Computed example of a mutant assay.
Amino acid sequence: MARKKDPISQTRQILYGAAKLLGDVNAVRKGTIGKRIARRAAGKATGRLLGKLFK
Rank of each mutant, 00 (worst) to 15 (best):
D6T: 15
D6S: 15
D6Y: 07
P7S: 03
I8S: 06
I8Y: 13
S9Y: 12
S9K: 14
S9G: 14
Q10T: 01
Q10V: 08
Q10G: 02
Q10C: 05
T11W: 08
T11A: 14
T11P: 00
T11Y: 07
R12N: 12
R12M: 09
Q13R: 15
Q13L: 15
Q13S: 15
Q13H: 15
I14V: 06
I14W: 00
I14Q: 05
L15D: 01
L15W: 06
L15G: 01
L15V: 15
Y16H: 15
Y16G: 01
Y16V: 15
G17T: 04
G17D: 03
G17L: 04
A18M: 09
A18R: 07
A18F: 12
A19P: 00
A19I: 08
A19Y: 13
A19M: 14
K20V: 14
L21K: 04
L21C: 02
L21F: 02
L21W: 07
L21D: 11
L22T: 11
L22Y: 08
L22N: 05
L22R: 01
G23F: 00
G23I: 03
D24Y: 03
D24E: 02
D24G: 04
V25M: 08
V25K: 10
V25D: 06
V25Q: 02
N26T: 05
N26P: 00
N26D: 05
N26H: 10
A27C: 02
R29D: 01
R29G: 12
K30I: 06
G31S: 06
G31T: 11
G31N: 11
T32Y: 00
T32H: 09
I33H: 00
G34Q: 10
K35V: 14
K35N: 12
R36W: 03
R36V: 10
R36Y: 07
I37T: 00
I37A: 03
I37L: 09
R39P: 02
R39F: 08
R40Q: 01
R40T: 07
A41K: 14
A41S: 07
A41R: 13
A41W: 09
A42V: 03
A42S: 14
A42G: 05
A42D: 04
G43K: 09
G43V: 05
G43A: 11
G43F: 13
K44F: 05
A45L: 13
T46W: 06
G47V: 07
G47S: 14
G47Y: 05
R48G: 04
R48L: 11
R48I: 12
R48K: 13
R48Y: 07
R48C: 08
L49N: 11
L49S: 01
L49T: 08
L49G: 01
L50A: 05
L50V: 11
G51F: 00
G51D: 07
G51A: 06
